[in-house]
Design a protein around this nucleic acid. Sequence first.
DNA 1: TTGCTTCATCTTTTT
DNA 2: GATGAAGCAA
Length: 724
Amino acid sequence: MNSHLLSGLNPEQRAAVELPAQSALILAGAGSGKTRVLTTRIAYLISTGQVSPHGILAVTFTNKAAKEMVTRLSAMLPINTRGMWIGTFHGLCNRMLRAHFREANLPQTFQILDSGDQLSAIKRVMKALNVDDEKYPPREMQWFISGSKEQGLRAHEVEAYDPYTKRKVEVFAEYDAQCQREGVVDFSELLLRCYELLSRNTQLREHYQERFKHILVDEFQDTNPLQYRWLKLLAGKENALFAVGDDDQSIYAFRGANVGNMQELLRDFHVESVIKLEQNYRSHGNILEAANALIEHNRNRLGKNLWTSESGGEKLRVYEAPTDVDEAAFIVEEIQQLKREGVNLTEMALLYRSNAQSRVLEHALVSAGLSYRVYGGLRFFERQEIKHALAYLRLMENTDDDNALLRIINFPTRGIGARSLEQLQETARMNGTTLWDAAARAGGKVSAFVALIESLRSATKDLPLPEIMDHVLEHSGLVAHYESEKTSASKKREAEERLENLNELVNAATLFVHENEDDSLTAFLTHASLEAGEHQAGDSEDALHLMTVHAAKGLEFHTVFITGLEEGLFPHQNSQNVDGGLDEERRLMYVAITRARRRLYLTFAQSRMLHGKVNYGMASSFLRELPEELLLWLTPRVSARRTFGNSSYETSSYVAAFGGASAEPAPPPPGALWKMGQRVFHQKFGEGTVTGIEGGGADARVQVNFKHAGSKWLALEYAKLTAV
DNA sequence: TTGCTTCATCTTTTT
DNA sequence: GATGAAGCAA
C-alpha cells in the first residue's frame, strides 16, 4: 500500500481516509483539508485494490471543484482519470442521459437551457396560455418550476388547492411539454430526468448500482432533496456513500439546498460515527476564535469547534467610516500599506454582501491605481454575442429549438418584426408544429432565413468544429453586423469587444476539439451550457480580488476585508422575513471570517449610497457577537457611543484622528426627531426600536423593529410615532 | 419595424 | 446609479 498517501495526515483525516467500505459523514470545518481527504480517500480505495477506478462515482457542485479533484488525483496515482465518473451533479446526469437517451425519451442531440433560456421559454408558455405576467411574474414562475423539480416533483405531483397555485401548475405542465416538443432540458430537468430514468428502469439502475461501489460527495450540505434522492438511488442497499460537508457553511438554502440532508444521511445509511475534522490549517487563532464565537449563536448545529496549532496572531481590525466613500478610502490606504510591507495584491480580498457594493470600492481602487479583478460577473458563454452565435449552431443541430430560432430569426435584423413573428407563432400553434415548420411554409423574408440556416448546415456538414464556427460567424451576418457597428462612435468599443469575443469563440472550439474525445457539435454546445466558462480569462497579474462572500467560499487570502457590515446590508434586510434567514446570514459571515489567514478587517459606514439614495444604518449585529477582546477598534468603539452617548452621530472626533479619508463627516440624518436605536411607540404595531433612517423631507422613512410585529419601514409623513 | 424615451427595480448563484 | 423592460413616435 502506498504509505506516502497517508503521510502528513492528522489522525482524524487519516481515519476518514482509511474507513472501511461503509457509508460515512465527514464534518469538515473550514480550512481542515476537506478536498485533500476526499481525493486521498479515492486514491486509497484504488491503490489498496478495494475498487477499480471504474467503480468510483465522485460528485461536486462546481466544475472547478471537479477539475481540482481530477488534477490532485492524477498527481497521486498513475491512472487515467479520463474515463472516471468525476464531475458535477449536472455533468454526470447529462452523461447518463446521453448514454441512454432513448430510455430517457430524449432526442440524441438534446440541448440544455441555461437560466436565461429557461426564463424566455417560460415567458413564451405564459403568453400562449394567456397568463397575466403582472399577477404571475415570470421570475417567480421560474422559481416555482425549478423549485418543484428540485424537490423531485412533477407538475401533477405539486399540491395545489388554491386557484393561484393551480394556474402556476398549469404553466409548469405546459412548460415541460414545450421543452419535450423542442427537445431541450433545463438544469433541474437534467437531474430529475436522470432520477426518473434510474428509478423506473430496473435494469439500468441495477447496472449502475453494481458498478459504483463507492460514491463520494463534496459539499454535501449544499445538496437539495432531489440530489440526495439521486444519490440514495445509486447507492442502493450495498454501496458506500462517503459524504463530506460542513453545516456551518451552508449558505445556499435560498436556492433549495437542504442541510437537513446531513441528518437524514445519518439515519438512512445507519452511519455510526461521524468524523469531525476540526483542525484548521489556514487561520491564526484570533480569527478562528472569532468565527467560533459568532457561529455559536446559531441553533441546530451538528456542533464543531475549529482549532489551530498556530498562535493567536493579530486582532481583528474594526473600522467605522462616516460614509461608504470613506470606507473605500480607508481600505485603499490599508492595501497600499500592506503592499509596501510586501503582501501581494493577489493575497488580499475585498468581500461584500451584495454586488452593488463593488462600485464604490472599484472607483477608489481605480483612482489609487491599484489593479483588481471582480469575480462573478457575466461569464463567457453567457455574453449576448456568444449566445447568438451558439443559437445558430443550436438551430442547425435541432430545428425544433424554438428558443434558438426566436433569438436569431431577426438578429442581425432582417426585417422580421414582432408582427411577422406573431403570425408565425399563430400558425405553429394552429397546426401544432414548431416554429421552424411554420417558417418553412412561410414566404418572403422568413423563407430567406430558413434558406440561410439550411445553407449553413449543408456547407458545414463535414467540417471540423472550429471551421463550422468560423463559417457560421461569417455567413450568419454576425461579424458583418458588429463590424458595421464599429462605425458608430458610441458603440465602437463595445462592438470591438464583441468581435474579439466571437473570435475567442473559435479559439474555444479549437481548444475543445483538442481536449475532448467527443468533438461533436452537440458535445460542444453541452459544454457551453454546463460550463459557462471561467468568469473571464484568468490572468496571472498581481491583482486584488473583489467578490461577494458567496463567491469567496472555498478560497483563502492572507488579508480579508469584510465591508459594509451594517444592519440591513449584512445581515441583509430581505433575510429578516425568511425562516432561518438570520442564521444563514450568520453562516455567511462565518464563511467570510474563515477566509482570512493572517489579517482580517471588518469595516462599516454610517451612511451609504444605495439605489441612488443615501441610507443611514447602524453597525451589523454580527459585530456585537464577536468577543470584544479579539477586536482592535481603529475608530471609537460603537457600543460606547451608541449605548451611553445621547447623540448617535458624533462623527467629528475620529475624522480628525483618522483623517485622510474625505474630510467631511456624514451629514446629520433626516427626520431629526428619530435617532438610530431610539425606542418608539406606534398605535398599531406597539413598541419598537429604530433601526434605519432613509431619505429626507416629505418621503423620509424610518425602519422600526417592533417587539411583536417585526421589522417595518414606515413613511414619516403618515405613520404616527411617539417616543418612549 | 426601429430606435429612442421613460419607468420600475435593485441579495446571494451554480449548473 | 445602472439596468432592462415597456411604451411611443418616426
